[in-house]
């Protein structure tokens, strides 16, 4: 019962995050919303795993948690340097 209520709450949070990702005026709003949606997906996976008695979903949750940070940092680096293989440090416009 409480697990269903928590699942509903996480779904509401995911909906708000999706709205922010669609409306966000800057790129960083969208990246922040994507990060929040990723965390919400992990929580949703764990709660549904408990709700249906299948705790194997937690492995997928671990995978999502590891992919979330990589995706966020990759998008931020791409929008800063325009290239994922850029070594960083100096700006492309400085040199």
């Amino acid at each position: 019962m409480i697990l269903a209520a928590a699942t509903l709450a996480v779904l509401v949070a995911l909906l708000l995050g999706v709205i922010r990702a669609l409306r966000g005026p800057t790129v960083f709003d969208r990246v922040l919303a994507a990060n929040a949606i990723g965390t919400g997906a992990i929580m949703l996976l764990a709660l549904i795993g408990f709700l249906t008695g299948r705790p194997e979903f937690l492995d997928i949750g671990i995978l999502y948690a590891l992919l979330n940070i990589i995706g966020t940092l990759a998008v931020l680096k791409f929008f800063r340097y325009g290239d994922l293989s850029h070594p960083g440090g100096e700006e492309p416009g400085d040199a």
Partner: peptide
């Protein structure tokens, strides 16, 4: 879990 769901929705409302 109930308190955590409350905080989760509060944070999402803040994001919005």
């Amino acid at each position: 879990i109930a308190v955590g769901a409350f905080f989760y929705v509060v944070g999402a409302i803040g994001i919005y």
